[in-house]
Design a protein around this nucleic acid. Structure first.
Lengths: 227, 227
DNA sequence: ACCTGAACACCGTTCAAGT
DNA sequence: ACCTGAACACCGTTCAAGT
């Protein structure tokens, strides 16, 4: 038998799963922007064209990868004693998982997630709201809004982390802009002490609390087909 | 004199302003994804390399364009009788402006806006909150969260609009997925009647109300340097 | 100093040709 | 049916050469 088949593992057969696995690997290593058809194909020792047998296009691949990531978010307990606390935990857990995969949140921003894992999580979130006595219409819309907030927050974490790496350039420019023009933004200046204070999770929790607490005092949206 | 200098207007000299103008034109016509260095340079009858004299890179150009767009948002009246109503108007106005420039919201998601117009708007928003009696720390964080929400909402509008154009494909797939797997998502099914109901502005207002109302009942974040 | 064309190192996607 | 290399039509950015 020829050496080549023994020296390195035989090229595994292509499959959608294998492609997604390769994509996950690239994502973990170099972030979502590195997940290109060519790069993923490279991991599998083939050319980009070969992937199109299993995946419609680059976009579909990324959406499938996103749903794989969502699978790692622990399901909330719909029968929890304190539904608001459980909502906070769910939000925090989701951001935590998204933070492990650099830039993945951008996928959820670019396409409303419809994968099975994402759907099951939304289903659980709505269940939590309904169990808490939130009206159906409010629950539907609130789930939408909260998910928008969660993904936006996770993406902002990514941006901030990337900025910390590029540091010098951008951060110094912003600081400089602030110093020289502070007089033009008196209110910003007045609250500046709080602006960049606190942990990221603290700020995230505050935003989530705004929504959860708001649910208790915001009337359910009226709707033509609602009674 | 040679004809060529009379037949078509003489090539205007390059300048940062001219480049941004050209970028705005492309943005209006074909959306932010069409705003590439090559395309913008094409409008100005030159090559992409020429732009680098006035602009550091493609990213900077897009951020400047974003700030141009923000200039169109009407400034809120900080002395308004009802600050909550003024907040709602500000939010709605911002989304309205962003909606006029396809995909521009993605820029604000990818980089926290620091342009002069964006800063003046944030300054006004914080002023509105402070005038309403919101504590400094809450105002600082709430402005952050609300802006995150505004840009995310505007970007989702863009996504939805683009989906309506591509229609057939994606929308039918999602509907099919819903039909066949509805049993797996009972809560989603239960509130589905509300999910896609209502105007986009109605949903947006609801989310904004959640935050505004939440501000009245959410304690100001405690902070080490705060008293 | 400003402008340029050509080149480099990438993209996604298609397609004819192979197995 | 599956896989492939080459090609097409794009990107952003750099750089030597011109004015």
């Amino acid at each position: 038998m020829p050496r080549s088949t023994r020296d390195r593992p035989a090229k595994a057969p292509l499959s959608k799963d294998a492609i997604v696995d390769a994509g996950m690997q690239v994502l973990r290593e170099d972030g979502i922007d590195a997940v290109t058809m060519r790069r993923v194909a490279g991991v599998l020792d083939t050319g980009a064209a070969s992937l199109y047998v299993y995946v419609a296009n680059a976009d579909e691949l990324k959406q499938v990868i996103f749903d794989r990531v969502v699978a790692e978010v622990p399901m909330p307990n719909v029968d929890a004693e304190d539904w608001r606390d459980e909502m906070r935990t769910l939000g925090r857990n989701t951001v935590e998982v998204l933070d492990r995969y650099p830039g993945i949140a951008s996928i959820a921003i670019a396409h409303i997630p419809t994968g099975d894992n994402a759907m099951r999580l939304v289903n659980a979130m709505i269940g939590l709201l309904l169990a808490g006595g939130v009206p159906e219409a409010s629950a539907a819309w609130a789930a939408d809004v909260v998910n928008l907030y969660i993904t936006a927050a996770a993406y902002e974490n990514f941006i901030r982390a990337r900025m910390d790496v590029d540091q010098d350039e951008e951060i110094e420019e912003i600081a400089e802009h602030f110093r020289t023009r502070a007089a033009a933004y008196p209110n910003v200046q007045r609250v500046a002490w709080a602006m960049f204070a606190g942990e990221g999770t603290e700020r995230f929790d505050f935003g989530l609390d705004l929504m959860i607490n708001g649910l208790l005092t915001t009337p359910a949206p009226v709707h033509p087909s609602g009674s």
